[in-house]
């Protein structure tokens, strides 16, 4: 099955998504990390998430672009974290942002289970222009596509899942 987990920053969405992993049967579990750790802050973030994942028996695959090239054995569970970073990698790192919705569908087709984490950054009332506006529109479109594709969608608020679609495992 495909699951989309959304929420604000610090909402506990990552921990919740990781909590879903042991509930799903799979041959091999892959953590698909999309953030490019380029500074101290992002490296600390990576370390915190790694510590959080210990004991889940996941293999980490770091990939900021071109998910078609990710090596995913048949029957795998993939936890993709997250769409905002993947989009940043494709948009600002010389990738192919237009191809992402299709790439996400293909990725879902190659996994036994796909859990996708995304972010809700759309209710601050700011008016952005140029590149930022294009990024936000592209992220929202990608989120909507992921939600349409997913069997289950939930929003996490203060660590509590609020179901939006389907039934979580």
């Amino acid at each position: 099955m495909t699951i989309l987990v959304t929420g604000g920053s610090g909402s506990g969405k990552s921990a919740f998504a990781e909590g879903l992993v042991p509930r799903l049967e799979a041959h091999g579990r892959i953590y698909l990390a999309t953030m490019e750790a380029t500074d101290g802050e992002s490296r600390r973030r990576v370390m915190r998430h790694r510590a959080q994942r210990e004991g889940l028996g996941m293999r980490t695959l770091e990939r900021a672009r071109d998910m078609d090239g990710a090596e995913i054995p048949e029957g795998s569970l993939v936890l993709l974290e997250d769409l905002p970073n993947w989009l940043a990698g494709e948009m600002f790192g010389g990738g192919n942002p237009q191809g992402m919705p299709q790439a996400l569908c293909r990725l879902a087709g190659r996994c036994r289970h796909l859990i996708v984490v995304t972010g809700d950054v759309f209710a601050d009332g700011e008016r952005y222009d140029g590149e930022t506006a294009r990024y936000l529109q592209a992220l929202a479109a990608l989120n909507r596509r992921a939600a349409a594709l997913a069997d289950a969608v939930c929003e996490v608020v203060c660590g509590i899942p609020v179901p939006l679609k389907g039934k979580l495992p």
Partner: peptide, 19 residues
């Protein structure tokens, strides 16, 4: 409508008044 009230309080008074 858009939800517009979940950001920091804006510095500019007209933006504050609008939200």
């Amino acid at each position: 409508a858009n939800e517009v009230g979940c950001g920091l309080v804006p510095v500019r008074p007209e933006e504050r008044a609008w939200r």
